[in-house]
Design a protein around this nucleic acid. Structure first.
Ligand SMILES: [Mn+2]
Ligand SMILES: [Mn+2]
Ligand SMILES: [Zn+2]
Ligand SMILES: [Zn+2]
Lengths: 124, 124
DNA sequence: TTTATTATTGCAACAAAGTCGCATTAATAA
DNA sequence: TTATTAATGCGACTTTGTTGCAATAATAAA
């Protein structure tokens, strides 16, 4: 027996799944009904990432954002799409745009975290 | 009269300039001769970034790394090159590889922070 | 050279993100 | 129904980075 399904986990997952944008722990805390301990939420988010249901976005605002994996198969995780953070409305979103990076000779690629800041179409 | 040249600034800048890799504040603190207050060093690094002598790399390890700008002209700052962090030897380096990102319709590009993790040629 | 101005520094206190140990609670297997 | 152990809440903690304030020092002005 490994993971157990709990209401906390389901709550967090539903929030992430129904969100159009990536969310920080703080964002989720605001959206979740009732109380939920910060440490617990981080543990939940970490487990989602471990299990490959959710991916992390490391932002230049000092926060980590979380978003559900959409096109990831069990054995094919590719998070090399671009993330965008609007400097005005603060939306953090996963873009369709994928980047392909030519690694230097002898280097091994493990993961990518590509973030672009600017203004979204509403805020431009 | 705006910026003043001080030995602290010069020390930090020389460390960054002579380093092959990008450095975190902590890295610099270890390299700097004698004592230097953390707040002071951050203020120095921030001023370098403001003045466009140095650019920031936001890493997935929770730290910010700093590296001198090499190909930036006064009016043409382009930091859309890829950064690489080796998961074994922990080197953080600026890669030659530049990424070009097609922004969605109506979006305005401001800055990019593209980080790749993996293993460098020594550690692969 | 001397003085005045103000950028820079050190210090301490603070903020925010995230982690961890531990006792308690609750899913699930037996 | 009971036993097992994952999940939770709590509080303490760590790390990165910032800020107010008084003291110091680089530089402009006299
Ligand atoms: Mn994404
Ligand atoms: Mn760089
Ligand atoms: Zn916007
Ligand atoms: Zn390496």
């Amino acid at each position: 027996m490994k993971r157990r399904t709990t209401s906390s986990k389901q709550a967090v997952f539903n929030i992430l799944k129904s969100s159009e944008v990536a969310l920080s722990q703080d964002d989720i805390e605001k959206k979740v009904a009732g109380e939920m301990n910060r440490a617990t939420m981080y543990r939940i988010l970490n487990s989602f990432c471990e299990d490959g249901h959710v991916h992390r976005i490391f932002s230049d605002d000092g926060r980590t954002y979380f978003a559900v994996c959409l096109n990831c198969k069990e054995n094919d995780h590719h998070h090399n799409h671009v993330h965008f953070r609007c400097l005005k409305c603060l939306r953090m979103e996963c873009l369709k745009e994928e980047i392909e990076i030519k690694m230097p000779q002898g280097y091994t690629f493990k993961d990518a975290n590509c973030l672009v800041t600017g203004y979204c179409n509403c805020c431009s």
